[in-house]
Amino acid sequence: MSRREHKPGTDFVEPDLPITPMLDMSFQLLAFFILTFNPAPTEGQIALALPQDKGGPSNQIPSVVEADKPMHFIIRVSAADNGTIEKLTVQEADTVTPARDIPASVAEFRDEVKRLAAQVAQAKKPAGGKLTLEIGDKLLQEYVVQLVDQGIRAGFNDISPVPLNKK
């Protein structure tokens, strides 16, 4: 059995940990991550009201009271062959008001849905407003999202995209 003891008067030797190689490696890692740093763009969701399916469960209980029905507007969006907006037509559903054309641009659409949202607010309907977008087959998703986006920003919570001439 051996027993080690510090001899009196012997200096204590502190272990020397080499920091420099570790620092070199850390700098290399840092350089790698800085060079490959590419922050992901922020993605978000836009909620949709899907078209009704016969026999399927309904999102909303149908209202029997006329006053509880939301103000329902239909905007028809015709698409050009290149997928852009060709024509915009606005009509209030369940009324005899004739459909009217508005200039075919997202900016005009925005102004129009703002006017419609103001109309809904003025009517003070508890159910609010409903917007149906009847969309042409060729319209690109880019424009579909822009139209839904403008509708939500104007204050419509119930926006349902359906194909043009089909309900």
């Binding site: 922020t42 993605e43 978000g44 969701q45 836009i46 909620a47 949709l48 469960p57 579909v144 999202v145």
Partner: peptide, 9 residues
């Protein structure tokens, strides 16, 4: 019944 469209913010 819950469907959402994803978009870049």
């Amino acid at each position: 019944t819950r469907v959402q469209l994803r978009a870049l913010f």
